[in-house]
């Protein structure tokens, strides 16, 4: 009797699974290509923004379509940010002429601008310093913690979102090498 129950159960599970798997493409069609809609998550198009530098130069993410872009959210009180940035600067120097762009967005709405500018200047960074004064870009990118690194491919699609120290020099180089190799 126990054996019969097993056979009935096993057959039912197998048949239902086959039906469910085969019907999935029909009942649950893929309604969206994620890349067609915008969200701060890998696979989606990166939300666009326009921000200005302390020198009143304005930059938009859209300006860099066709290039790999790293958007890096930071603040001057964030020690992990400051530990990560020298590595990013080194990569920026090596890959800038290959089309790589690094946009360092200072969360100015929760930072002291003068301290941040002072830090940026003393370190001799050459990547653009953008100010998110209202916090609206941070909100669009659902910023939860600093630093947050958002890697965007030349098509404008987010490939990686990394919170914390993970966007190390080595990791960024490997990402760019892969991305640039694909483009060739």
């Amino acid at each position: 009797m126990k054996n019969r129950n097993f056979f009935i159960g096993a057959t039912t599970l197998t048949v239902l699974s086959v039906i469910w798997i085969l019907l999935t493409p029909t009942i649950f069609p893929r309604v969206e290509g994620a890349a067609q809609s915008t969200a701060a998550h890998p696979g989606f198009t990166a939300p666009d923004f326009t921000l200005s530098t302390p020198q009143d130069q304005t930059l938009s993410l859209a300006d860099f379509r066709g290039q790999p872009v790293l958007v890096f959210f930071w603040a001057s009180w964030c020690s992990v940010c400051k530990a990560t940035m020298p590595g990013l600067q080194a990569v920026y120097q090596d890959y800038q002429d290959k089309g790589f762009e690094l946009l360092a967005i200072n969360t100015t709405y929760q930072d002291t601008l003068s301290t941040a500018i002072n830090y940026y200047n003393t370190q001799g960074y050459s990547f653009p310093f953008l100010m998110d004064e209202s916090g609206s870009v941070s909100k669009d990118y659902q910023l939860h913690a600093l630093p947050t690194s958002v890697m965007i491919d030349p098509q404008g699609t987010i490939t990686d979102v990394i919170i914390g120290s993970g966007m190390s020099e080595g990791f960024l180089r490997s990402l760019l090498d892969n991305m640039l190799a694909e483009r060739e």
């Binding site: 993970g166 190390s168 020099e169 080595g170 490997s174």
Partner: peptide
């Protein structure tokens, strides 16, 4: 395994083999 794939990165910074970041 990551550094076997990207040997040049290891050459540049061998210490990153033991870095505690959750990437690479």
């Amino acid at each position: 395994g990551f550094f076997l794939q990207n040997p040049s990165l290891f050459m540049e910074n061998p210490l990153s083999l033991v870095s505690l970041t959750p990437t690479m």
